[in-house]
Design a protein around this nucleic acid. Structure first.
Length: 162
DNA sequence: CAATAGATCATCT
DNA sequence: GATGATCTATTGC
């Protein structure tokens, strides 16, 4: 997962920070409350995008990771911009350096132009796609507690590529 | 530089 | 009607 390349149109980035949400056993996960209109995609087959709107102004991108019936997902928290830097800058006037373009769940969705219209998109087909790195990442993964949530915040489910 | 408040709406109770 | 997997600008040292 970490190190994978995310591509949407002219913009692309390397996934360097993610958080896992375990579904039914994880009180912090949206799927914890069961199947609803918003979480239904989480209960489907893996490899699909789960996009949700939060705080009235931000959207977050997740990948469904668990088999059908098991609502696990991974929140993409941060990317390292690889392509389409100009496009990203145009979308994010407040970012001062490249590292700021895609740092944070809400920021990367704006830089990559990912919105609710991509809810349920198949990541193997597009318009957003994910590609494995040439060689697996190793030795640079840091595990930390999760961020920004109310319950189970101290579960070590945040993974950062250094 | 650290801490805090405000923006703003889809979804759930 | 309340809440939230956030970001930014502003205020206070």
């Amino acid at each position: 997962m970490l190190g994978c390349t995310l591509i949407h149109g002219p913009a692309a980035g390397r996934i360097v920070e993610v958080e896992a949400y375990l579904g039914l056993s994880d009180r912090a996960a949206h799927a914890f409350r069961g199947l609803t209109k918003r979480t239904q995609i989480l209960f489907g087959p893996p490899g699909h995008a789960y996009v949700y709107f939060i705080y009235g102004m931000h959207q977050c991108l997740n990948f469904v990771t668990e088999p059908e019936g098991s609502p696990g997902c991974v929140l993409i928290r941060s990317l390292e911009p690889l392509a389409g830097l100009e496009t990203m800058r145009a979308r994010r006037p407040t970012a001062r350096k490249p590292g700021d373009l895609c740092s944070g769940p809400g920021n990367l969705t704006r830089a990559m132009d990912i919105g609710l219209s991509l809810y349920g998109a198949d990541l193997t087909v597009g318009p957003i796609t994910v590609h494995q790195p040439p060689q697996p990442v190793s030795g640079h993964v840091v595990v930390t507690p999760r961020i920004g949530i109310t319950y189970c915040a101290d579960w070590p489910l945040r993974f950062v590529l250094s």
